[in-house]
Amino acid sequence: MATDAALRRLLRLHRTEIAVAVDSAFPLLHALADHDVVPEDKFQETLHLKEKEGCPQAFHALLSWLLTQDSTAILDFWRVLFKDYNLERYGRLQPILDSFPKDVDLSQPRKGRKPPAVPKALVPPPRLPTKRKASEEARAAAPAALTPRGTASPGSQLKAKPPKKPESSAEQQRLPLGNGIQTMSASVQRAVAMSSGDVPGARGAVEGILIQQVFESGGSKKCIQVGGEFYTPSKFEDSGSGKNKARSSSGPKPLVRAKGAQGAAPGGGEARLGQQGSVPAPLALPSDPQLHQKNEDECAVCRDGGELICCDGCPRAFHLACLSPPLREIPSGTWRCSSCLQATVQEVQPRAEEPRPQEPPVETPLPPGLRSAGEEVRGPPGEPLAGMDTTLVYKHLPAPPSAAPLPGLDSSALHPLLCVGPEGQQNLAPGARCGVCGDGTDVLRCTHCAAAFHWRCHFPAGTSRPGTGLRCRSCSGDVTPAPVEGVLAPSPARLAPGPAKDDTASHEPALH
């Protein structure tokens, strides 16, 4: 009773807030009518008042009428009001819900409408889902798969039609296919003929059939049928067999079959498995989609049935006599038709004709302190090069084509190399640097090759510096006499390219 009084008091307290929050009759008014909170006449009256005075006034009048009803109607109103779709449509209802007392429970059932309790003993237990329907569909599909699609060729003596089998029958139906081979029951999904010589313990000319048996419980189990008994694959494991010639990621696949039913060829011909030897223990289905393919039931050349050999690369099948050149017997292992072999060759040939990528240039590290003349020119003028003790990398590039010797140069053309002071002394051009340390401070000019250098860098042994005729380390061993002091540049003949010694390969005349 306390809860009923509290709900009535809360409705009177929030009546105006609810009326202002509800700006549309749908969905709240319609939901109240659906849950029998508002009768039909009051529903029509509220809609009429909404058209006349507006939605807030109409709902305020409806809530005032609701306060005169019993506690069950008020409880049902609060339940409908706080439904998710009403809270989404009328956003101003959320503060009312947040301020609702926590001790007021809106989930209690309506009085007088409590459903009768059902004894637990009368409640049926839930049924577990079964796979009976899938099993029945598999039974119905198996006879259809064994139905012949056409008439065999005159040369083929193997013609068999499976008798119709009602689904209610649980007995196995067997077809006489000759040579002791028996087909599987209607619940078998796949059958492959297997030679009895590969099964340990088999006697006589009995041949087993590799099947997948579907049981009534819905589970499946792969086994071997020899005669009327089934054997699990673990009985046929043979770890010492060295003649297993397995197909790549293979499961067994029928390579020879008669049109209309699988079996042995007439005249004692023995149908073979995809792999010879003992049956392997793992009978998992292969991951290669080509091995799941269903080959055609007629020859791809003459479009006739009979004894066919199936290609492992495509769905086509052929007569042995229709092949070019014809085959006398079934080859062992994987067999592919000429079209598949030709496609494989065409895929391999473009790969062989692809040009080989060019090898990157060989990189040879230079000892610290040495650099090529090109690196000396590329440096920024007026700045010493940083990191001189790091190992430089010199790339061996292809030799350029031989060019004509340089033409003779006048001494005026070499004027930018040297600057003559007032006393006739050779001065260095701006930006000249030593080729060893890279520093341009207090550098000297070689009178023979006009290269800038430090005496301490080229002659670290402490050799005394002569007063005139300074030469760098590369030119100090040259027998050519030094030019007379005061000459602007060496003779043009000295600039012609010539053979250089091994220790002077990195010091070429550089223009500054």
Rank of each mutant, 00 (worst) to 15 (best):
L122C: 12
K243M: 14
R247K: 13
K83D: 01
E51G: 03
F59Y: 01
R139P: 02
S249T: 03
S107P: 02
L28M: 02
L32G: 01
T68K: 08
S135E: 14
E171Y: 14
W65E: 02
L10R: 06
I209R: 09
E40L: 03
F43Y: 02
K42E: 00
D36G: 07
G197E: 02
R113C: 14
A258I: 06
T16Q: 00
E136H: 12
A191I: 01
Q108T: 14
P176Y: 15
L67H: 06
R257K: 08
P129C: 08
Q189R: 07
P125R: 07
S234V: 13
S71L: 00
A246L: 10
A265F: 15
V38P: 01
E237H: 09
P200M: 15
E40H: 01
E167L: 15
H14I: 01
G242A: 13
R132M: 03
P129D: 02
L81F: 03
P233S: 10
G150F: 14
I211E: 00
D103Y: 06
L97Q: 00
K83R: 01
A58V: 03
V38R: 09
Q189A: 13
L11T: 01
Q189W: 00
A73R: 13
P129V: 03
A160G: 09
F230N: 04
N179T: 15
A144H: 02
M194H: 09
G218K: 08
L62Q: 02
P200C: 14
G150R: 02
K102D: 07
L11N: 01
R15C: 00
P124T: 06
E229S: 06
I181Q: 00
T3R: 12
D70M: 00
E53Q: 09
D23F: 03
P154H: 03
G267R: 08
V118P: 15
A31R: 01
A202M: 13
R15D: 03
D105C: 07
S217I: 05
R190S: 07
S185H: 00
T151I: 14
E270H: 15
E270Y: 14
S239R: 12
P200H: 11
P266D: 08
L106W: 06
I211D: 08
S187R: 12
S248A: 09
E51T: 01
S250R: 02
R113D: 06
P148H: 09
S185Y: 03
L11C: 01
P233G: 12
V80S: 01
R139M: 10
S169E: 03
R8C: 02
S185C: 08
K243C: 06
P95L: 14
G208E: 04
A258S: 06
S234L: 10
A58G: 01
L66W: 02
R247I: 09
L29F: 00
K131E: 02
P115G: 07
H30G: 01
Q94C: 00
V37F: 02
M184L: 04
L146W: 14
A31L: 05
